[in-house]
Design a protein around this nucleic acid. Sequence first.
DNA 1: CGCCAGGTGGCCC
DNA 2: GGGCCACATGGC
Length: 273
Amino acid sequence: MAGTIKTARFDLRQTMECGQFFNWLRLDHGGRVGTPGYRVRAHGRVFDVRQEGGSLVFTGADSLFIRSFFSLDHDPAAIRSSMPEDPWLDRAYRSFGRLRLLRQDPWECLVAFLLTPVSNIPRIQGNLLSVFEKTGFEPGRMKPAALKRLGLGFRWRFLDSAALRVKRLGLEDWRKAGPEAMDGILGTGPKVKDCVRLFGYGDHASFPVDTWIRRVLRDLYRVKLKDRELRLWARERFGPWAGYAQQWLFAWSRTEWKPALRHGRGKVARDAF
DNA sequence: CGCCAGGTGGCCC
DNA sequence: GGGCCACATGGC
């Protein structure tokens, strides 16, 4: 299974590396000209994909799956237009407006985001790879003793709790039960749940508030609200596609705002932008 | 080599 | 409900 799909306003690298999804490896392209490719593990499959100009080139999956996984039916320009005028959003959109929110599998997505609390993206990615190699993401193979040896820190308990819960229902029924099936699983606070709603269940109005989004809204938008209200404020402001705004702002703040903060002797927080 | 990291749960008041 | 704090390690 291989193929090519023409795309518009799509950037594979932004999509893979913006922080919504961790289950990929960059393929060494041996010095060839062109964008680096990725080996992707998602929905229990493995496929390779790279971008050549306006086209997505893939092997190991069929085009229907690729269209769905990469949300090629979404229209970023229309999504941006559905939101209000906003200089900060403009900035973020200018840099990351070609990413697409992926359609991830809810269970794989939950496993990944249970590894995120007080961690960092390189580590999350490494941890996720270890978990896959050890368990194949099968709840039945997620034994405490095995999880403890993977360098997950305190997060091994979260996976253990999730695996226990899912084993009780069965993976298929658990998936079909929707986001409420996360209730009672250790480690699923508001942030993790919002991420799984957004990235795993396709709830595009969801707006996860993490440390970077919190800073952006506080220091740049000058919104002084608690996290709980911030989520609603953002949903209200950005509308049914608020999840895209979240991802644009998140990716931008980490890659462009954060470095400027570090070099700015502490005071460029807002005015320099 | 300290500091910090896509938070959360369990206390205390 | 709000304000602490430990949580277990690795990345930089």
